[in-house]
């Protein structure tokens, strides 16, 4: 959530080239792009940890399993916290909920962003004016502040609820970027042709416009994914995380709240931070790689 709508600063895809050869070419460059490979590998490893990891624990990650404040050892590779909870167990569950928040929150934001962006860009006129104003209002309101007040009033919070709220508030820049892209595609011959042959608006957007910017949409989703993770971790840290689960942000919250720093329990607050940074950073780097793959201008020779 830190870079300024990074997609719009990169070059736009060039529609109009035949899709088959473009796809083959994209694949050719994809398997040769270091940034994409490194990023995707790191994300993949963490994804595996999040999917498989929790199966190794039959107890809840919140269970008090051992002595408090144990440094990393063979039995507890990441040590235990002041309550004697297994930090590795919390970590693998936390990675899982991190992906959940990213997928759900980023996915929802991408869907809303696409809907608003497509309709505003394709319809233009008054519809565009109104949607644009709406987008600008949501854009200006600080996301975290809104989430803060909503979450504060919600008594019981879940990962899904958190993701829902993040998705509902973090779509504006995506909508704006997609609107601009749609706007430039609207005047193309193939869209005109579809319109003249009486194809309905929804179908034109789905069949003609969306496929022609699919790589762009995918990259937007990745950035929203990473952004959702960062917002969620901030909420968790303030103490507005899921009340029924564990997450990397909550681990940081607990570590901070229970003086892990003063007690020197570095194994409590280092892993969750590395987890978030690595996942989000790898997503961003993979995204740069994707950009180079899809945009011939950026390819290095």
């Amino acid at each position: 959530m830190t870079t300024t709508d990074p997609v719009s600063t990169t070059t736009a895809p060039d529609p109009g080239t035949p899709p088959v050869s473009v796809r083959r070419e994209a694949l050719y460059f994809a398997v040769r792009n270091g940034k994409l490979l490194v990023g995707a590998t790191i994300v993949g490893i963490f994804l595996l940890v999040g999917i498989i990891g929790p199966f190794f624990y039959d107890q809840s990650p919140m269970a008090y399993v051992g002595q408090p404040m144990l440094p990393p050892s063979a039995e507890y590779p990441f040590g235990t916290n002041t309550f004697g909870q297994d930090i590795l167990a919390q970590f693998v569950y936390g990675v899982r909920s991190t992906f959940e928040v990213g997928l759900l929150g980023g996915g929802l934001a991408a869907i809303i962003g696409m809907l608003v962006g497509f309709v505003a860009g394709y319809r233009g006129g008054l519809v565009d004016e109104i949607l644009n104003m709406f987008t600008n209002v949501v854009l200006v309101i600080p996301t975290l502040a809104v989430l803060l007040i909503i979450n504060a009033y919600l008594g019981i919070r879940s990962v899904a609820m958190q993701a829902l709220l993040i998705g509902l508030t973090s779509w504006p820049w995506a909508a704006r970027a997609i609107r601009a892209q749609t706007f430039s595609l609207r005047g193309r011959d193939f869209v005109d042709l579809a319109r003249l042959s009486g194809v309905r608006t929804g179908r034109i957007i789905l069949r003609e416009i969306a496929p022609n910017m699919s790589s762009y949409l995918f990259m937007t989703f990745i950035l929203l994914f990473g952004g959702s993770i960062l917002i969620a971790s901030s909420l968790d840290f303030i103490g507005l995380g899921p009340t029924d689960g564990v997450s990397l942000g909550l681990m940081l919250n607990h570590a901070n709240q229970w003086s892990a720093l003063m007690l020197g329990l570095w194994w409590w607050f280092v892993p969750p931070g590395i987890g978030i940074t690595a996942i989000v950073g790898a997503l961003y780097v993979a995204n740069v790689g994707l950009d180079e793959v899809f945009n011939p201008k950026l390819r290095e020779l």
């Binding site: 901030s234 940081l252 720093l261 931070g273 978030i276 996942i279 950073g281 780097v285």
Partner: peptide
């Protein structure tokens, strides 16, 4: 600059804060 930039921008604010606090303070 690019890799350092991406790592920094992917870092949660509170984590850098915690690390600095721990490193320089504790």
């Amino acid at each position: 600059v690019l890799p350092v930039g991406y790592i920094l921008t992917a870092t949660p604010y509170m984590w850098i804060a915690i690390l600095l606090c721990w490193g320089f303070g504790v």
